[in-house]
Design a protein around this nucleic acid. Structure first.
Lengths: 216, 216
DNA sequence: ATTCTATATGACAGGATGTCATAGGTCAAC
DNA sequence: GTTGACCTATGACATCCTGTCATATAGAAT
């Protein structure tokens, strides 16, 4: 988290600084981004940067969180719009995200962010399904339409969302890495969501550790 | 790739250097690992390191690739052992990987590697399913038992494997991040594989972009 | 005006990176 | 055994980056 000093800044100064930070994280991947460039670009003293942020990571994650908050709101909005249909919601979210890549100003930043998608970054994106921040899951779980899902309890819904999230992020990262067009990217993603819905095996005894289900 | 000079080294020198590299990448996450420490630990001149490797990443990825080659062989071996059953094979692989975390010597290294699992690193792990290195997929695809899968063509098999891989890696990373025990970790993973097999929605019209399938 | 508190500054110590000129070693050829 | 070509080893060095700190400045409160 940025230090209190940062939040005390005038809106103008804050905006100026954030602009410089975004510029630097757009210029180079996280590992190569430099605080030196940020302070140069924002025309502030080096020491000032450290009055506002702990370090490079602090600044990067703050910027990221701003976008993520926006996503979370959009997720809930979509879930309502689609009457709790999880799959339509995920596809809508996916679409929403890749549309952001079209914005020239955001493109480089997102590319650097997604190609640097490690556990720390990913867990920011998926906080809502993390048990550390379980309240986000609680917020969402009742909005999901469950009557058409195969889940037998709430815990399974949790896993369903984890799976959807894993596949979604994987596709988002790939879209960046391979610079896929919206069409290519959406086609692959919807195909995979479709496979997830119908299941990977058919008409057979499926057995797991603790359950035996016979579909027919 | 390491430079030719590295491969010309005597086995003894190579082993000594690799040991120092592994030690450093076990000591600290990738971003914090230092070439300075590697040369100190290997007792070689700083300049020598640069005779062998391009930079830090070069050394890291080489070390990683050594482990990954081993994985690939194990995957193929398992697929044969389980008569082409993809799911058993993935579960076996998952088990094989998390068992590695138990090895005290490897533990820290894998933890740092997995928590630094970004697209570049992941693509090393999953090369076998990448279209860039399609020959690995070709090698595997004929070994997979397909009669119990819902797939209609080879391309869908590709997506099935992508999905399984995404969920698998996601679970591996989480196992490291949360320091789960083998039992906890396997329980979650098999649960999710089970969900993938049976599908997420039930007895309903499932529609996607280009197909309509009625399950009954 | 004075004092107290918060903010801004940039010089600086410490330390890491990648390079390079130089030195050392090996080996085939003469 | 001398030569020379080629490969390998070295560590000093220029360059640059980070995080800190003593100091200066501004603003608010009394």
């Amino acid at each position: 988290m940025p230090k209190p000093t940062f939040f005390n800044l005038s809106e103008e100064k804050k905006a100026n600084l954030l602009k410089a930070i975004k510029k630097e994280f757009s210029r180079a991947p996280y590992n190569e981004a430099l605080i030196s460039n940020i302070v140069k670009s924002a025309s502030i003293a080096r020491g000032s940067f450290y009055q506002y942020f702990e370090d490079k990571e602090d600044a990067f994650l703050f910027l990221l969180d701003e976008h993520i908050e926006n996503n979370k709101a959009y997720f809930i909005h979509s879930l309502q719009k689609f009457n709790g249909d999880l799959f339509l919601t995920y596809i809508e979210m996916f679409h929403y995200m890749i549309m952001k890549f079209e914005n020239q100003e955001d493109r480089a930043f997102f590319k650097n962010a997604f190609l640097n998608m490690n556990h720390k970054v990913e867990s920011r994106f998926t906080r809502k399904f993390n048990d550390k921040d379980i309240k986000h899951f609680l917020e969402i779980k009742d909005m999901v339409r469950k009557d058409n899902l195969t889940i037998t309890d709430e815990q399974e819904l949790f896993h369903v969302m984890r799976i959807l999230t894993a596949v979604t992020i994987h596709n988002l990262v790939e879209t960046c890495a391979k610079e896929l067009t919206i069409e290519e990217s959406l086609k692959i993603y919807t195909k995979e969501i479709h496979l997830l819905k119908k299941g990977l095996v058919q008409e057979e005894v499926i057995s797991s550790n603790d359950t035996n289900i016979h579909i027919n």
